[in-house]
Write a protein that binds this DNA or RNA. Structure first.
Lengths: 236, 236
DNA sequence: CAAATAGTGTCTCTTAGACAGTATTAT
DNA sequence: ATAATACTGTCTAAGAGACACTATTTG
């Protein structure tokens, strides 16, 4: 089955293709960077894990399609979606020429079973696990590209806060950086990190509250500030 | 004319769309950041200036399509093409649903008339001029996105050297930064810039030659080094 | 000669990182 | 009390920018 058709514009034949979106949704669960995956219910690769995604509808915006597919397949509603890259190798989908636009999103740690545990069969998988598996289409490359984008954005954007539920503490934020960047506990100096975050203008604002969680001195609580770029950046 | 068709996969109707690529090619001419534009020969917007680009062929890779269109419409062959973003608003092209993948490229200052002065009607236009014009489709947004990408990449990649023919001098490189970032002459301190470039590991390597061009002490010549990211970066 | 450009030296200020030390909690 | 976490203080080294100064060309 080949979707290629032609439409005559003046004297030219113009081929066309299916348009798809795929989404890498990242979160931190169990002190690991995890990604949501769905089990494929259709050929090709029925039964294999894959990134959520699907075809864009007529008159549907690309980002809207990504949101819709995410809800349909994983029950997840995300705030921000960032377009990462578009994949269009002629043979990337055996069903016919398909162009796929990749998005990445980040969500805070969710209560167990809030997403994907219903009939939809979506599940959280540690990124390092999914990277080892054989994924359909070019989903392995997509995963790598999206994770690298997220890692890079931690440096110069407030993305890290998207992994936390508000209000959050500086310690929680530090753990996000450690985990997403694959560092060991305390590889990032808590003292220096504290100053770095607080010196980045409008990254976070204190609520005035403190919260005690486990042993140790209670931590001040913060909310995300208005900054869209961190200055100075948080270096890797 | 609406290109939307449907193909049955199991029980679903899958719409499809035209796939296009557009390219922003930047250079420095006449101490200005310029972009190559083509005059449209087809509806819509016949006669208007637009970014070069066109439809992707059956079994053609996206980047290959961008290179082909660039040669066809502007006679330009570029080394590196970087994918910037994909535009897919349902109504962005009146001829029917079209998804366009945007690429950006950079070329050194070319001898007058080397590109685009034949029948193809391609011409170099200062970016500030083209930004003021009404462009077809969403080309104005594309132009802004591509220019911003190039400005950002100057900081942490050796992109600036792509604006120069090898070998080049540090002074020529400095002018690239000044012009692309829209700074006045000597806004960037030549002394500090020199050290910055030479301290960025593998950014440039000296050829050992010197060249004299106009008044002033002759400058050492350099070639691009092997670095793909600049460390430390050249800050804006 | 003056003007222009290339390149070095040096000073100051800021920032990054290492690390010691204090504060406050759970157990 | 001990361990764990939060936070402050302080020192050092490196980098950014300002600017004086030297070197070498054109006109």
């Amino acid at each position: 089955m080949n979707p290629y058709g032609v439409v005559v514009t003046k004297k030219k034949f113009v081929p066309f293709a299916f348009i798809a979106v795929d989404i890498v949704v990242l979160t931190i669960r169990d002190r690991q960077l995890q990604v949501i995956a769905v089990r494929r219910g259709e050929e090709p690769d029925v039964g294999k894990l894959a990134l959520p995604g699907g075809f864009v509808k007529k008159d549907e915006d690309l980002e809207a399609a990504a949101r819709r597919e995410l809800v349909e397949e994983t029950n997840l509603e995300v705030e921000f979606l960032e377009q990462v890259k578009t994949y269009g190798a002629p043979d990337r989908d055996p069903r016919g020429r398909t162009i796929s636009v990749l998005y990445v999103a980040v969500v805070p740690d969710l209560p167990e079973g809030e997403a994907g545990t219903d009939a939809t069969e979506a599940l959280w998988v540690p990124v390092v696990e999914l990277e080892k598996m054989s994924l359909p289409f070019d989903h392995s490359i997509m995963l790598a590209d999206a994770v690298e984008r997220a890692r890079a954005k931690l440096e110069y954007s407030p993305l890290a806060a998207s992994f936390c539920r508000e209000p959050f503490t500086i310690g929680q934020l530090r753990r996000v950086y450690e985990i997403v960047w694959g560092k060991q506990k305390y590889d990032i100096d808590p003292a220096n990190f504290q100053r770095k975050v607080l010196s980045a203008k409008d990254f976070v604002v204190a609520t005035g509250e403190v919260v005690s969680d486990g042993p140790g001195r209670p931590a001040r609580e913060y909310r995300l500030g208005t900054a869209s770029i961190l200055n100075p950046p948080v270096t890797r």
